[in-house]
């Protein structure tokens, strides 16, 4: 049977039909390329009431809210996570969130290798559009408030800062804590000590260092650590202040109220849900890797925990300062360098 159309016309019609079909299904493919599955890698188990737990909590919340699958790879330590990253990419993760500064060299490598976008921490210089985004989180606005609170609560006019390392996020919080304290009382003394090189799990070291900081006169301790934070808490609970009274502890990132032995004054709480949600939205819009992500008092991704130990009038004063920060009347600039932090502390030569 002879076709009614000449061959060139038939070929043209077929090509046109294919082109139109391609156009029609293009949005469906674009939809498929959106995020359906995210994976979060944490160095420790998500039960530290801090860094790891907040990441897991936020990922689950985002997963539920957006109906996407969430894989949590936890307790990976601080070593080489390339195999885990590759495995998660092979399992179909559309976004890998490498939630440790120790992963920010390997994760971009795996992103290049597999084409799966990664989010890393503390390295904005490594961002690549569509592939690598950074979230150098800093609760400096909240830490400033913590400094104001600590000064109001201190009886000895001496505050302690104990940290288990000097990553940029913690430096900025230590600096902001000092700035907030000095803004409330320019004569306040600040004692600062790092537990050890990357002593994130060194609870005994944390206790030993905190004991010394307390003995140096501090009666409010601003502590930043992961597992080591519990050593700070233990030191605060088993020591008396120089005046025989209670020593207060101000935590960061998580909320330890459920295990408080009566010394948890407050915490600079990080809510990572808006951060992860923004990453997913940016992937959908094709803007992933073009900007960093932050946490702020303004959108409640950062807030100061109100414990029962804070007198109402003190809390009122702290909230006044919060409003001033949100309104832009007080600007808290993050200082990410350890040198800048040390410059704010009380030196024996002062």
């Amino acid at each position: 049977m002879k076709l009614g159309l000449p061959l060139p016309a038939l070929t043209g019609a077929l090509t046109g039909a294919l082109f139109l079909a391609g156009l029609a299904i293009a949005p469906a493919f674009a939809q498929d390329s959106e995020v359906n599955h995210i994976a979060v890698l944490t160095p420790e188990q998500p039960n530290d009431f801090g860094w790891n737990q907040q990441a897991a909590k936020a990922a689950r919340a985002v997963g539920e809210a957006l109906s996407i699958d969430v894989t949590l790879a936890s307790g990976l330590g601080y070593g080489d996570v390339r195999p885990t990253l590759r495995e998660l990419a092979a399992e179909g993760a559309d976004l890998l969130i490498a939630h440790a500064s120790g992963y920010n060299t390997t994760a971009p490598e795996i992103a290049e290798e597999t084409g799966v976008p990664v989010a890393i921490v503390d390295r904005p210089d490594l961002m690549q559009p569509g592939l690598v985004a950074d979230y150098t989180l800093s609760g400096h606005e909240g830490a400033y408030l913590a400094g104001v609170l600590a000064t109001q609560m201190s009886r000895s006019a001496t505050l302690g800062i104990v940290v288990s390392g000097e990553p940029p996020s913690w430096n900025s919080q230590s600096a902001a804590f000092a700035q907030g304290a000095r803004a409330s009382d320019p004569d306040i003394e600040l004692r600062y000590s790092v537990i050890g090189p990357a002593a994130y799990a060194d609870a005994a070291g944390a206790r030993r260092v905190t004991d010394a900081v307390i003995a140096a006169g501090a009666d409010v301790i601003f502590g930043q650590g992961n597992g080591s934070t519990f050593g700070i808490l233990q030191a605060v609970e088993t020591n008396d202040a120089p005046d025989g009274g209670k020593i207060w502890f101000i935590d960061v990132i998580g909320d330890k109220s459920s295990i408080d032995g009566g010394h948890l004054l407050s915490s600079v709480v990080w809510n990572l849900e808006p951060v992860y949600r923004a990453m997913i939205e940016d992937l959908g819009k094709g803007t992933f890797g073009t900007r960093g992500y932050s946490i702020r008092l303004e959108d409640e991704s950062l807030y100061l925990l109100q414990s029962e130990h804070i007198p109402a009038e003190v809390w009122e004063r702290v909230m006044e300062v919060r409003e001033q920060i949100v309104a832009g009347e007080i600007t808290v600039e993050p200082k990410f360098e350890a040198e800048a932090v040390r410059a704010l502390m009380t030196a024996v030569s002062d």
Binding site: G75, A201, D202, A203, A204, S228
Partner: peptide
């Protein structure tokens, strides 16, 4: 000794 007297608690990897 590290866990009981030194720290007063146990956390993973605490021997560091």
């Amino acid at each position: 000794y590290l866990a009981t007297v030194g720290a007063g608690l146990f956390v993973p990897f605490m021997t560091s």
